[in-house]
């Protein structure tokens, strides 16, 4: 039997679902498939999760330069190096189902030459997309409609800030780890965040009002492999990794849905004795629509900007929308029109 040594890592800890699944599913699954195929190869994994080799600000370059062989790339923060991949941030609020986003990107990146090249230019090969659960509101004040949000300061990390203007929210760039403290002391009045993230930092303790705004799931990142490593891997190992990664995507989609349900339930349960108790409500459909319709034409601005730089922005946007519609989604906003 021949062993192949591979280092696998991430900037985030394994409590983050898409990182945890790399360890609990992807790693063993590759070897299971190699064994099932009767291949002589076995992968010996060396783990570097939780930012021990690089931080969230260098996920793409660290895989590209070979600090790890396989790693999670925080694509949502790599606007400069992966411009076309940002499409889901600029065409937001299409679907609240992370499985849709994962499926679309898993088809679109390998199938669109410009997208594929964008990853390879950074010396990495895209393996599988990861998506966050849908965005909701976590606030220290009750939200009955978007009128309650006007002028309120809400934490909104990175591209989530793009959504703020639709409801007159004042976005404050706050990262997840400091969010709890910032709400508690009153620096911000709440946050636009995901349930699976909020539950981990106990955000509900300071934001008893959870309003399901369903502002959409979006691409958080992707698992990618260093291109030099990839070229050197024996073909059976490559195949095993690729097929395991494809199923990793399916596993993750389900896991994210479950994680969201579980998180909301857990927050309500543990927040019962709190004053006021944690309460989950939904933003009225009309208000949600008004919010999304109130956004500037983010997607067109983004696409035209890329077109001007000789990058197929409009084409990628059109493909993305077509793929999303193909899954039966009826967009609130047709960002490509």
């Amino acid at each position: 039997q021949q062993t192949v040594n591979l280092t696998i890592g991430s900037s985030h800890p394994t409590v983050v679902p898409w990182v945890g699944l790399m360890q609990s599913y992807l790693q063993p699954e590759v070897n299971k498939r190699l064994a099932a195929a009767g291949s002589p190869y076995k992968v010996v994994w060396r783990e570097a999760y939780g930012g021990v080799l690089y931080k969230a600000n260098a996920t793409l370059t660290s895989v590209g330069e070979g600090m790890v062989d396989i790693g999670w790339v925080f694509a949502a923060t790599e606007g400069a190096k992966l411009p076309l991949t940002q499409v889901s941030s600029y065409a937001p609020a299409l679907t609240g189902d992370p499985r849709h986003i994962i499926e679309v990107f898993n088809r679109m990146v390998p199938g669109t030459p410009a997208l594929k090249a964008e990853w390879e230019k950074n010396n990495v090969v895209f393996l599988a997309a990861t998506a966050a659960d849908t965005l909701d509101l976590y606030t220290s004040f009750p939200v009955n409609g978007i009128a309650d949000l006007k002028g309120r300061k809400l934490g909104a990390a990175g591209a989530i800030a793009l959504l703020a203007s639709g409801a007159g929210v004042v976005p404050v760039n706050t990262a997840l780890p400091t969010m709890y403290n910032d709400v508690k002391t009153g620096v911000i009045d709440g946050a636009i965040s995901i349930a699976s993230g909020a539950v981990g930092i106990k955000l509900d303790e300071v934001t008893p009002y959870i309003t399901q705004a369903d502002l959409g799931s979006f691409l958080s990142g992707a698992i990618a492999v260093n291109r030099d490593t990839w070229a050197k891997l024996p073909p059976p190992v490559r195949e095993a990794i690729q097929s395991a990664a494809a199923d990793y995507g399916k596993q993750l989609g389900d896991a994210m849905l479950r994680s969201r349900e579980g998180a909301l339930k857990a927050m309500v349960q543990r927040g019962q004795s709190q004053n006021p108790p944690v309460k989950v409500t939904s933003l009225p459909a009309a208000d949600r629509e008004q919010w999304i319709r109130g956004l500037p034409n983010l997607a067109q601005d983004w696409a035209k900007n890329l077109d001007r730089r000789n990058q197929p922005g409009s084409q990628v946007l059109a493909t993305y929308m077509a793929e999303v519609r193909k899954l039966g989604v009826r967009p609130t906003r047709d960002w490509d029109r």
Partner: peptide
């Protein structure tokens, strides 16, 4: 032309 941050923000 590498940058940090989010275009549009």
């Amino acid at each position: 032309g590498d940058f940090i941050g989010v275009e549009g923000v």
